[in-house]
Every structure is written in C-alpha cells, then in structure tokens.
Write a protein that binds this DNA or RNA. Sequence first.
DNA 1: TAGATTGTTAATCGATTAACAATC
DNA 2: TAGATTGTTAATCGATTAACAATC
Lengths: 217, 217
Amino acid sequence: MSKNVSLPVVRRLPRYYRFLRELMENGVIRISSGDLSRRMGLTASQIRQDLNCFGGFGQQGYGYNVRALYEEIGRIMGLGKHREAILVGAGNLGRAVSRHMDFASRGFALTGVFDVNPELVGRQIGEVVIQDIRQLEAFCAPNPPAVAILCIPKEAAPAIVKRLVALGVRGFWNFSHYDIALHYPEVVAENVHLGDSLSTLCYRINELEKQPAQPEE
Amino acid sequence: MSKNVSLPVVRRLPRYYRFLRELMENGVIRISSGDLSRRMGLTASQIRQDLNCFGGFGQQGYGYNVRALYEEIGRIMGLGKHREAILVGAGNLGRAVSRHMDFASRGFALTGVFDVNPELVGRQIGEVVIQDIRQLEAFCAPNPPAVAILCIPKEAAPAIVKRLVALGVRGFWNFSHYDIALHYPEVVAENVHLGDSLSTLCYRINELEKQPAQPEE
DNA sequence: TAGATTGTTAATCGATTAACAATC
DNA sequence: TAGATTGTTAATCGATTAACAATC
C-alpha cells in the first residue's frame, strides 16, 4: 500500500494519533477532515492527502470513524510490535528518558541498559539492571535489539555506533551530537538534538523581540 | 539584513555551528562550501544559499574563514545574550534536561525552577532552588523570563501556559504534548516531543525491515 | 433524493539544486 | 594572470493547497 511515504507525512502521524486519541477519549465517534483540520491547525486537504498515502479510511458524506482511524494509524506506525530497545548511556538524560518514556505504547520494550561508569553498573532503571558497556556484545549478539537509544557524549558515539551496527542494530534514537546518518546511510536514525532545539528557540525569540510587539490580530 | 528567514534554514544553523566549531578545534582556518557540503552531507548550493540569507560571509576564490563564520552564526542565533529561562516541572525529565543542558552557551541562564510536588520544593538543581508553583507570579512578575521550559504533563499545561503568557513570557521550550502554538499564535514554541520522535522511529524501523535487506551500495 | 465529505487530480507555492557571471 | 569559489539568478523538484467529480 504505502510506497515510500515522505518523511514530512510520517512525522505528522504521531500528532494525528494524539489528537484522535483525545477525541476518542472525549467520546467523539466520527470526524470530518474539515473539523479535524480546524482543531489541529492544518488544512483539510493536507489531512486527506496524508491519510490517503496509506489507504482510504474515510467515507464520503460521513468523514472518518475516530476509533477506526486511531487504530489504523497505530497499525501503520507499528506501535503494537514491542521490538527490543537498549539504552546506552545511563547518565541524567538516559535515566530520565527511559523512566519518563512509555516504551510499550510506542512499539518498544527496554531490555538492556549499558554504561561505562562503574558506579552506575548494577543499579536499576525500572525493571532493568545497568550493565557494564563491556557486556554489550555478550548481551546483544544472541538477540540483537532493533534499536539503541544513545545518551552518550559525542566523543564516545563513533565507537559505540560501530559496535552496535556490527551487532546488527539498524535503528538509533540518537540524543548525541554524532551524525549517524552521515556515516551509516543504511541505518535509521531519529535525532533528538536538544542543544540545537534550544539554539533555535534562542534565534526565534530574538526575531520575535525585534518585532515591535505585534498588535493583537 | 535578515528579512524573515525560513524555518528550515534557521533549523540548520545550529548544525552549521557545530560543524564549524569542530573544524575550528581541529585547527582548520578556511573552508569552501564544497568541502563543507561533503562533510555535512548537504549540497554546496544549499550552504551558500543558507548563509546568504544573513549576509555575504565568504570570499570568492577563498571560501569562508572558519572562525569568523562560526562567530557570525553564533551572533545570528543570539547565543551571546543570556536571557533568563525558568523550568516548570522538576520531575525526572525536567531535572535531567536542566542538569544536562549548557544553557550559557545557548543564549540562556536558568534562573528559576518550579514544581507542584511539595517533596521537590526546596531541593536544588545546580545553583537553583526548586520553588512551589504558587510562587510563579511573585517570582516572574517583577522580571519576566524570556522563556519557560515546560516539563509538565499535558493536563497541567493549559493553565500553566496561560499564567506564563499573562506574565509576559513569549518563548516556550515545550516538552509537553500541549499544543501551545495552536492556542497562542503570538508566542514562539519549540517543541521536543519525545513520544512523537520515538513513534516516528518505530515507523521507520518497520519500513526498513520490510525492505529485503538492501545490498551494500 | 439532497447534502456532506471523501479521494484524487491539477494548480500553487516554497525550498532545493544547478548554473554562471563576478571577483578574489 | 589563471584557478578557485563565491553570491545570485534561473530551473527543478517536492510538498501543500485548491478544486471537483465520485459517492455515501
């Protein structure tokens, strides 16, 4: 059905999913692309185009069934699968992310955590015990995880990524500033570059303040 | 000089900044758009177009002076300014983000942290003591921060954002799933939607695995 | 049936890439 | 001067929006 859907469309799917879930929780049974577009700040055209990348889920004259569409999008994203994920780097950020994130509802299960710091090794994050990074191969080789979450410094990243790719890991949730896609075009990397995001905010706040306080409307 | 540069260009600035910094640290004095494009996985055209949104920083036949360009981009992003930022929500994620992030090098200084949880109030994050969220107005009114970092649950967000906007806060680093831009088009919101990012990775990993293991090249 | 709303094709818009004259 | 590389204009590409026939 989906023959290489463009990344902008894919990145909108989680947002559709969230809005549909909320509608569902509020007991809304059906919704038209026009109504949804007003709620989400998109055009109705875009919503229909986006959804039709994956199939015709609506019905003329009626709109979309909220629950059916919600479930369809969940299936499209593959959230039901629970692939294995490991965390590399159990510092502040790594621990917070893995405690904060509900992996199960996003298609993953956290099965291993690794760090270089001997003070962290042996401690627990949720159900999982932090292992020494030297155990990485022993743990992963028999059963390589689908993705690795990288919460490690930039300098440590090249060697770790190399080891993980060699082990067969093909997906990265990358919080480091190492450019995985550049060096390994065959893998998938989702970057969360917090520093870049904050820098962008800095720029945009500056721009906003340059404007002489836009009058309302 | 810059008359409303497009967001895609702005979002590339932090990446240029990082690459230039690294070149600088490696003692590289000058670089051409062609050379930089190969290192960054962009086209030389795009680099020149991007930079020329802000001014002509290069020199024909020579290229760009690495240090000068680095500093120029820092100025463009406004990283030297150290505007005040507060954190709302000092849970796992909020604490990790504020400990992990070097605010000073991204144009901000963290001056206040707030939470509802009385067990957290009084504890410290770095130099800053966590205050009760009820102190928000008392703290902000005399001297409203430029931005607020939101690490709070979706349900808490509408009320908090309303209070912050009323106080004059015009920028948000938004880790919550509340859609600020939709409700307050006059403010700037940078979203970090970790859940959406992980869901996107889930989709992309699925797509990758559907492919019958692309041969090298 | 009439009204509503989809799925889809066509038009528009914006961003990226290519080309090249200007110039260091 | 000759070679290199920019800044900038023009061409291309892709994504968004508009339009509308199909149809529930």
